[in-house]
Structure formats: structure tokens, C-alpha cells
Amino acid sequence: MSGAEFWIVQALNGLQLSMLLFLLSVGLTVIFGLMHFVNLAHGALYMLGAYFGVAMVSATGQFWLALIVAPIGVMAVGMGLYQALIRHMRRQGPMNQVLVTFGLIFVLVDLVRILWGNVGLGISVPELLHGPVQLFGISYPAYRLFIILLGLAVMLALGLVLTRTAIGAMLRASVENAAMAATMGINVERLLLWVFALGCALAGLAGVIAAPVFSATPSMATDILIPTLIVVVVGGLGSLRGAVLGSLTVGFVQTFGAVLVPGLASLLIYALLAAILILRPQGLLPARQ
């Protein structure tokens, strides 16, 4: 493998990690911006998505079905949690939200361990995405390319909904000024619930598509949590563009850091986080200036 090919592969890997982070962080950041609610259990929902996917595939053998059903399952869990816990936590301040959702991580992780055990479970990639594909003169696993394309598609769809539809306008108005939006007749509460549900579904989707690459393990819940939170903080609360920029930044810093300064890649990420918090606490592209 020549030098240029190596860097193209690394760039694609960075892009693939960025897309996973985007799927996770976009829900988190909008919930954060809209509800001022910090959901530490978001990573646990990602883990649930992976296990729901594993269960679906082992029951039916249908990857494509799992890709649809698992996010819906995660969404249902998310809605249940919203009704049972999160609704009551809305006005309790960040401290209590952090604690309750931190407790939820423990509960969900142990439930998964009870149901599926500690051993990592894999999903085999569907036939269509099995082999490598030729791209820019290199061969790259088709499945990883699929992750990139799916992430880009979701990014595009969300961007269109947010900028071109009435729902999107309502959402932007609510992030900008929830009280004002409510007086203009927008049902902010109901909007919140659906945004939360969508965020959960996207976390679940990220979980299913990650399962064939990393295999489903209980540690997924906490492993992905910190990078996702970093994306949210770096990008800026509540904004789609922030989530895109944050995911790309973290994904590429992590991937290239691992190649260029092995071992210290995660140090770079934390240094980036600390620098943003101290120098530009609103993030790079916040929804509210």
C-alpha cells in the first residue's frame, strides 16, 4: 500500500467514525439545546440498538429488517424513559439530570448483561455489502462505505427538514426561544417528545450499523458516551451544523491522532475539549449566538 492510499483509507475511516458520532450526537445536541437536558444514557441507547439488531438478525436472519426495527425498538424504550423519568427531570437542573441518567446507564447495561451476557456478539454483514469496493484506486470495505453513505443521507435529510419544512422552522424557533415559540402557538412540549424520540431512534440506528464492525458489547454504552459529549460541546449546543462540524473534528482528530501519535490520540481529544470549554464555551457553531 503506497503512501497516498494509506492516507485515503485513513480519511475514509475518519469519515466513517465521524458519521457514527454524528448519528449519536445530533439527537443529543438538539435535546440539549431544546430542553437543556443532558442525557448521559444516550450511549446506553446506542448499545441497546446494537443488541436489538443482534437479536433481530439471529431471530430472522434479516439485516435490513433489523436496520429498521431496532431503531424503532430503541425509540420505544426512549419514549418509555421519557414518560417515566425524564419528563419529571426537566426543571431539576443539570446536576440531577446527570445523576438520574448516570443511574440509567448502570441499569440498562446490567439489563443487557442479564439478557445477552458479557461476551461480544457480532452481526454478519449482508451479502450485498460483503466484499471490498474499488474507490479512488484503493479497495475499501463496502460495509464501511455504507456507513458513510447512510450517515451522509441522514445528515442531508435532517438538514432539509430543518431548513425547508414547517416542522423545521418550529424546531429552530423553539431552540432559539422556547417561551416565545410557545406563545406563537407552537406546541413545544409535543415537539420535544418527538425530537427526543427521533434522537433515540438515531442512537439506535448508530448501534445497529456499528454492531457488524465493532460487535455488540455492554461497554459500548460508556465507550461512546464521552466522544459523543465532546462532539456536542465542540460543535455547539442545539445546532445541526455544529453536530456535523463537531463529529468531523472529533472523528478525524481521533483517527489521524491514532496514526500520527499512537497512544496520545485520546489526549488530543480531551485537550480539544478543554480548550473549547475555556476559550469558546458556546462551541464552534452554536444554535444561539
Binding site: I226, L264, S266, L267, A271, A274, L277
Partner: peptide, 28 residues
């Protein structure tokens, strides 16, 4: 001193960042 100007959830994140930096350094 460095985090004194940061409030709420961002303070939690900042302390997390510094703690994890120490962890990575010791680990490596």
C-alpha cells in the same frame, strides 16, 4: 483556576476532560 469561569454541565465536562487527560498520560 482554569475552570472557574465555567458553569453547570460545562464545568462537569471540563473537569472530566482534565481527569481523562491525566488518565491517558498515566496509562501511556
Amino acid at each position: 483556576a482554569v475552570t472557574a469561569g465555567i458553569g453547570g454541565i460545562f464545568f462537569i465536562m471540563a473537569t472530566l476532560a482534565f481527569g481523562q487527560m491525566a488518565y491517558v498520560i498515566v496509562f501511556e
